[in-house]
């Protein structure tokens, strides 16, 4: 068995709802990943720094506040500036389709909406991180 993929799950911004992030974190754990969970109200700078220290393969951002168009690009830029452009970024939350497309264009690998099943999320990320 190889090394488990490492993924940081973070909630940037000010909304206080982390149920979804926790459910996804649990599903990723059950899929065999090492999930670093950082909790609520993270700034983009904190997320980038944590991703760097933890040497993760991916970052998952949970955003329910509607601030995704501000917060996600700041995380993407921060990762790039820190020399971490190889880190894959996923977004989960309530994101309208045109925004989702814009985020993908900006470098986000996948955007998961409210209807996405944890099984699909976990298997998609697993596949993209391990190629298996």
């Amino acid at each position: 068995m190889g090394t488990p993929p490492r993924i940081l799950i973070a909630k940037p911004g000010l909304d206080g709802h982390d149920r979804g992030a926790k459910v996804v974190a649990r599903a990723l754990r059950d899929a065999g990943m090492e999930v670093i969970y950082t909790g609520l109200r993270q700034t983009p700078e904190m997320i980038v720094e944590a991703a760097l220290q933890e040497d993760v393969d991916a970052v998952g951002l949970s955003i329910l506040s509607g601030a995704h168009m501000t917060l996600v690009p700041r995380v993407l830029d921060g990762l790039r500036e820190a020399g971490l452009s190889r880190v894959k970024v996923y977004v989960g939350g309530i994101v309208p389709e045109e925004d989702a497309q814009a985020l993908r264009d900006a470098g986000v690998v996948e955007v998961f909406g409210p209807g996405a099943s944890t099984r699909v999320i976990a298997s998609t990320i697993q596949q993209q991180l391990t190629g298996a």
Partner: peptide
Amino acid sequence: FSGGALLGDRV
């Protein structure tokens, strides 16, 4: 069972 882990100390 899965080999995965939830590392939550940073919280």
